[in-house]
Structure formats: C-alpha cells, structure tokens
Design a protein around this nucleic acid. Structure first.
Lengths: 210, 210
DNA sequence: ACAATTGTAGACGATCGGTCTATAAATAAA
DNA sequence: TTTATTTATAGACCGATCGTCTACAATTGT
C-alpha cells in the first residue's frame, strides 16, 4: 500500500550518524530552540548548535540555506510547540475556562524552574533583539503573538459563556493585554530568578477578570 | 578659595578633539546607550560606538577598563537618566498623582515614536539578553528595576493620600506589577511599530487602580 | 565505468574584543 | 634649555569566532 516513510530508493552518501536527514534537521531545530531561547539569535553561533548534535559545520548548509532560514524554521517550530501547549491546557474539559488559564500558568512556572529561569520565551527574547535581527523576523514574530492572542481570546469567550467573565469585557483587548503582561513577567522572572513576577502578574490579571 | 573645576595644573597631552577627557567619556557612554538600546550588548561592537564619536580604538582602553566595565557605566547612566525622567513627571505638583503617571506614559509614547519604535528600554532589552551577558549585570539590572519600583511606589502612596487609589492596595505589589507590564508593553510596541500596546496596558492598569 | 546524488570535512575571509608598542603634546624637574 | 614624566592618540596585531563556500567522499542509477 503506502511506501515506507523513508524513501525506499535512496541515492547518495548515507548519513554517518544513525539519523535520517529529516531527523537531523528536526534535531538541529530543537537544539536551535534551546540555544536561541537562552542566548538569543545574534550572539549564538552555529558551532554550538552543531557540536551538540555532532553535525559537522559544513553539513549545516546542506540542511538549511542560511542562519536566517534556520532561525525562521526555529521560530515556526517553537510557535507550533507553544500553540500545542496552549491547546492542551485551554481545551481541558476537566477544568473551567479560567482554571485552564491558571493551569497553563502553573505549567509555565514549572518549566521556568526546570530550566533554572534561564530560558523564558523564545518569541519574547527575539522580540527584544529586533534591532539586530533579519527584518523579516519582525512580522513573523508579530503573527505568532497574534495567533496566541486568538487562542486565548477563544478561551476568554468560553469563560464568558461559563459566567466566569463579564460579557462586557472585550476579549480581544483583554487577551492582547495578557500577552503583553506575560512577556514582561517572563522577563522579570528571569531577572529575579523567581517565579514570583509571573504569580504577581496573574494575580492582578485574574482580579481584572472578576 | 575653590580651585577651578577642571584641574588648573593639567599635565600630559591635551585631547585632540575639543572635548575634555570627562566629556569624551560621557559622549562614549551616551553613544553606548543608543547603540546598546537598539542592538543589544553582545551584538554591538565597540568599533561602531567609537567611530561615531571619532575616538580611535586604541583610546578606548584609556577611558574604560574593558567592554564589560563600559557596559556597566552605560547601564548606570541610563538608569540615572530614566530616574530623572520619572522624577520630573512624578513630582509635578501641577498634576494629581495619577495624572503624573499618565503624563509619564505620554512622554514615553512620544519618545517611542520619535525613535521609530526601534529603541525601547535599555534595561528591558538587556534583561532579555541575560544569557549572553556578564553575570554581574543581572544584579545591576535587577536593582535598577527595584529603584524604579520604589519611585512609582511613592507616587502610588501619594495617590492613596489624594484619594485616587484605595488605601487597601499594596502599593509595592502594584508598582511591581506596573513595571512587569510596562516592559512587556514596550516589547510589543517595538514589534508592532505602534504605541497601541502601551496605551492598552495603561488603560487596564488604570482600571485596576479604581 | 561513469554520471548523478547526497552528506562530510575543513578551509576561508571578515570581524570581533582586547592588547600591544610607538609617539605626540603638554608640564615638572634638572 | 634640556630631560623626565604624564596624558592621550594612533593603529597594528592576535587569537577566537562568525557565516559561508569549495572540494570530495560515499552511495545509487545507467
């Protein structure tokens, strides 16, 4: 019926490490997410990313056209990963809408601790770095935020339906406000090496919703 | 009585450009604020800063011990500049306390536009860059925020005295919340090339205060 | 056997932060 | 006046590291 996922007829020199080209590509992107999230795009070298995945430097341009194209793929992958995290929490039928938001926050706090407050949010980090970033990234980052904003907007609408949030509230504006504060909270959380700023922000945000 | 401010007996080769050594130092720091605010610390070279002020590279280490020491001076100067801006607005007796906060916001929005949304806040930018910064910067940046937080805390107390803010509010927590949201708003403002995020944040913050 | 394809390997030039030596221009001491 | 000392300029230079490129190794198809 269907062919094997990896092309059965495969020409050319085989990969030296055990991984298929698609796997290697994916592994590089994953590593890119980690490194760029911690150290930013401009001050991160490809060497570091390649070294960890045991991919020789010369091979990089076999997998990606340039560092810029690589960064684009990294951003896309991170956006996807984060959107999944949002969906997982925001669609949890076990909890009320506002409880789902709280569970997302708890999960994020746990993640911050796990990485010793060194990572935070790739999108936010790159946003601050805009001045030394390829110009095309700006619109990409902006649209990622818009996507998250839409997802939260839906949750807030559900909260309205459930009577947890006044129907007078502008859910679009409120969710835009959330992500504004969120990025600030992540920043201060890294600076203070504490999840307290995140907790503080959420506390006031929740108050705003009552 | 008192000697002239610039030492009257001055040995050694005089500066070539018209500026005194202190002036040159100050000019380099000013330029450093601009460049670091736009492009960050790690991805900015000393060359760029020196070129603009027509200071030869070799002279740099006459004025500063290292790039790290230079950055420290830049942060300190920016913190001072920003604290002055806060004081100028927060101590304006012509306005009520909450009006003073609003006037600060208006001024900041004007500044963002003036620089075409490319600059934002040096402290916030460096905060996001923490992973690739000299470790000593973290505590320095943190203490700058603490200073701003204290200044806003005093204003909020004045607002309480003036009956503009409930005395039940924890002014410390509220001002911490303000700076969290503020940095997020500046970030999104740069991303969207619009002052709308700042306006949106302030709108909700003001609502929280009533 | 030879072309086409695919991944590997390191050379390469540019640029960075930081340091070095040489020197210019002033005053202090001889 | 001459020489020493101080202060600032000037740019060459070094090792490290950046992103990119070219050569080639290893496989399959004809």
């Amino acid at each position: 019926m269907t062919q094997k996922q990896t092309n059965p007829v495969r020409r050319g020199r085989p990969p030296k490490n055990g991984y298929s080209p698609e796997e290697t590509r994916q592994r590089l992107i994953r590593q890119g997410i980690e490194v760029f999230t911690e150290k930013g795009f401009s001050s991160s070298g490809l060497d570091e990313i390649l070294r960890q995945e045991k991919v020789p430097k010369g091979s990089f341009y076999h997998y990606f056209q340039s560092k810029e194209a690589f960064g684009e793929a990294v951003i896309t992958e991170y956006a996807q990963y984060f959107a999944n995290k949002l969906d997982r929490n925001f669609n949890n039928e076990q909890l009320s809408p506002m409880q789902r938001l709280q569970s997302f926050v708890d999960e994020a706090c746990h993640g911050m601790q796990k990485h010793k407050f060194k990572r935070g949010c790739l999108i936010g980090n790159l946003g601050q770095e805009l001045g030394s970033l390829p110009p095309a990234y700006r619109v990409q980052l902006d649209s990622v935020f818009l996507n998250w904003q839409m997802r939260l907007g839906l949750l807030l609408q559900a909260a309205q339906e459930a009577g947890e949030l006044s129907k007078d509230e502008d859910t679009k504006a409120l969710s835009a406000f959330f992500w504004i504060g969120w990025e600030g909270a992540i920043l201060k959380s890294k600076l203070e090496i504490s999840e307290q700023p995140i907790r503080l922000f959420i506390q006031y945000f929740m108050r705003l919703c009552r």
